[in-house]
Design a protein around this nucleic acid. Sequence first.
DNA 1: GTCTATATTTAGATAGAC
DNA 2: GTCTATCTAAATATAGAC
Lengths: 222, 222
Amino acid sequence: MASTLTALDAPQDAAECLLDAAEAQFSENGFHGTTTRAIAAGAGVNAALLHYYFGSKEQLFETVVERRAGEINGRRRALLGELLAQTSAPSLEALLEAFLRPTIEFGHDTTRDGQRYARLLVHVAAGTDERSRRLTAQNYNGIAQEFIALFTGAVPGLAQKDAVRGYLFAVSIALSLMGRTGRATDLSAGACRDDDVNQAIEEAKIFAAAGIRALAARQRDD
Amino acid sequence: MASTLTALDAPQDAAECLLDAAEAQFSENGFHGTTTRAIAAGAGVNAALLHYYFGSKEQLFETVVERRAGEINGRRRALLGELLAQTSAPSLEALLEAFLRPTIEFGHDTTRDGQRYARLLVHVAAGTDERSRRLTAQNYNGIAQEFIALFTGAVPGLAQKDAVRGYLFAVSIALSLMGRTGRATDLSAGACRDDDVNQAIEEAKIFAAAGIRALAARQRDD
DNA sequence: GTCTATATTTAGATAGAC
DNA sequence: GTCTATCTAAATATAGAC
């Protein structure tokens, strides 16, 4: 259960084991569906250590979310930096690539258990409860504003409100791919694979870029 | 708390009160975050009656989901019937209208508490746990196949797998609007309102139609 | 059909030894 | 830092009177 996402392959201490086990449990059953005892058992440590290190189940949950959000947004900003080093006026497709790839790729990362956090992120980003909304705002509103501003620069005539709408639609598309529930495969009798990450990213980019451009085109007509 | 969505304004019996209260509670906190006592209290009935009428919390949850799914899909099929009575070859936009309006409108229906079920549907349709996937398949795979087939008929060159992908992307967009978390308003400093249902439906239609057509266009290039 | 009372289990959290 | 033991509260569910 070593997590090579945050650390080297050094032996994990109890706190790190708890974080990884918590991520696995929370991603399957959500906050309320997960028990602190199950987390401790999954981590192979004593149940009392959870409170020793994190104080409460609530704080553990928030720590799990923040750990991976920092990583995903770090990758996004790294890709964005490379892009802006090449051109000062990146295309919408290139921006969507930098935005979508880290999350969708994360969800398809089997060797490093990225799938676990991907599903947790679906819980948080799609959730409508107070905690989900707060954590989404805290961890993702900053990166959202950065990309929304770049969208408006990349698409002539794209109004601020349409950039926001398009951004949120793009997020929801990414979330639907990250969950990997197998529904696409079911509905297409196997033709639409859930496990081809490059195919998924490509289709999300094509769909979202066309959608955002269409919102801008309508705006110009008003 | 009368529900005029399923019945007339007749006085509700205990079972119906429980269904309505359960819908409200489940939509806020999900399955595990909701207690049977809170449901009974919200319904104003004795806690033992929940088990008398529904057997278990699990069966109550499934009944709540099925009740509204039948209603939403009924509206979709009614709109679809009107559409197909007018033309044998409806446009993609007209199909998306028939598909999206019932759900998104439901989420914006304040007077009839549709918002409650809208959020519950977000839980179920966006959830990755076993129960969510099973209930989604049971209640929505039928209507999904109907619309996917119509999409392929409406867009020349749209492959089956791209129709499935486009359908699921459209669903995820609708879900993001149904939740009404206020994030669009936050990110746009008020410019992008969360409460204008016709605006939301229009933007979802424009975005999804352009996205699906773009998938078809790429398919032809392969 | 509706109630009270309660059985049974399990939850999150803590005290205190080591 | 880690353990055992346990507190306190709350959960789902049921038995049985009315």
